[in-house]
Amino acid sequence: VLDAYLALTGDPDAAASAARDLARRAGLDDPRLEAALALFEERNGFIAARGLPLERFVFTGSFARNLDYYTGFIFEVADGEGGESAAGIKPLVGGGRYDGLLQHLGSPDALPAVGCSFWLERLGGER
């Protein structure tokens, strides 16, 4: 089941449908999994509602950021030219949610957080 999930790739709507199908075939009837899939589909809806072409987004089940403090949605933005990343392209921006990081660093409370890094040298153009 894990290998099948890690092999999922495609636009987010197709990936959500494939993940639901995989869970059903594997007999994974868990409310936490249902909640995660519903949240993923809801996020897809918000992205599409903002006028962003969801079909140009790529979900990859094997994608991960190299930092373990992320707690939710993670992402990369790429131009599709050269280099290698989880999606096979050089990222221009990468980031995600890390709600537990500040508490891990000493905050008395967990604080919701999201951030990203830009690789300015990859943006091209005149300097």
Results as ranks from 00 to 15, higher is better:
residue 14 A to H: 15
residue 25 R to M: 06
residue 123 L to M: 09
residue 62 S to K: 13
residue 37 L to Y: 10
residue 107 S to I: 06
residue 36 A to W: 02
residue 101 L to Q: 10
residue 86 A to C: 11
residue 96 G to H: 06
residue 45 G to V: 13
residue 9 T to R: 14
residue 75 F to V: 09
residue 77 V to I: 06
residue 121 E to R: 14
residue 74 I to C: 03
residue 36 A to H: 03
residue 63 F to I: 02
residue 21 D to H: 09
residue 17 S to P: 02
residue 95 G to N: 05
residue 25 R to I: 03
residue 79 D to G: 05
residue 23 A to E: 07
residue 121 E to M: 11
residue 35 A to L: 09
residue 75 F to A: 04
residue 61 G to I: 01
residue 109 D to K: 15
residue 56 R to C: 07
residue 38 A to V: 15
residue 113 A to Q: 00
residue 34 E to Q: 13
residue 48 A to G: 11
residue 76 E to A: 10
residue 93 V to D: 01
residue 38 A to M: 15
residue 87 A to S: 10
residue 23 A to I: 03
residue 49 A to V: 02
residue 35 A to S: 06
residue 99 D to F: 14
residue 113 A to R: 01
residue 127 R to M: 03
residue 96 G to K: 09
residue 37 L to D: 10
residue 96 G to N: 06
residue 69 Y to D: 00
residue 40 F to Y: 14
residue 86 A to D: 04
residue 9 T to N: 09
residue 89 I to R: 08
residue 38 A to G: 12
residue 43 R to E: 05
residue 7 A to R: 11
residue 73 F to R: 04
residue 65 R to E: 01
residue 97 R to V: 01
residue 50 R to M: 08
residue 110 A to F: 15
residue 36 A to Y: 04
residue 84 E to V: 10
residue 50 R to C: 13
residue 18 A to S: 13
residue 2 L to H: 15
residue 49 A to I: 05
residue 67 L to G: 04
residue 79 D to A: 03
residue 38 A to R: 15
residue 69 Y to I: 02
residue 22 L to E: 01
residue 66 N to D: 14
residue 90 K to W: 13
residue 78 A to W: 06
residue 121 E to L: 11
residue 7 A to W: 08
residue 23 A to T: 07
residue 43 R to H: 07
residue 109 D to N: 15
residue 54 L to P: 00
residue 33 L to N: 00
residue 76 E to R: 07
residue 33 L to R: 02
residue 39 L to K: 13
residue 117 S to H: 05
residue 23 A to K: 01
residue 99 D to C: 05
residue 23 A to N: 08
residue 119 W to G: 02
residue 115 G to V: 04
residue 45 G to D: 12
residue 3 D to S: 13
residue 125 G to D: 07
residue 88 G to K: 08
residue 91 P to D: 07
residue 97 R to N: 00
residue 22 L to I: 00
residue 27 G to I: 05
residue 118 F to Y: 09
residue 48 A to K: 13
residue 109 D to I: 15
residue 96 G to A: 08
residue 42 E to T: 12
residue 77 V to C: 01
residue 126 E to K: 06
residue 100 G to Y: 07
residue 22 L to N: 03
residue 75 F to D: 07
residue 104 H to V: 08
residue 20 R to K: 05
residue 63 F to Y: 13
residue 82 G to T: 11
residue 74 I to H: 01
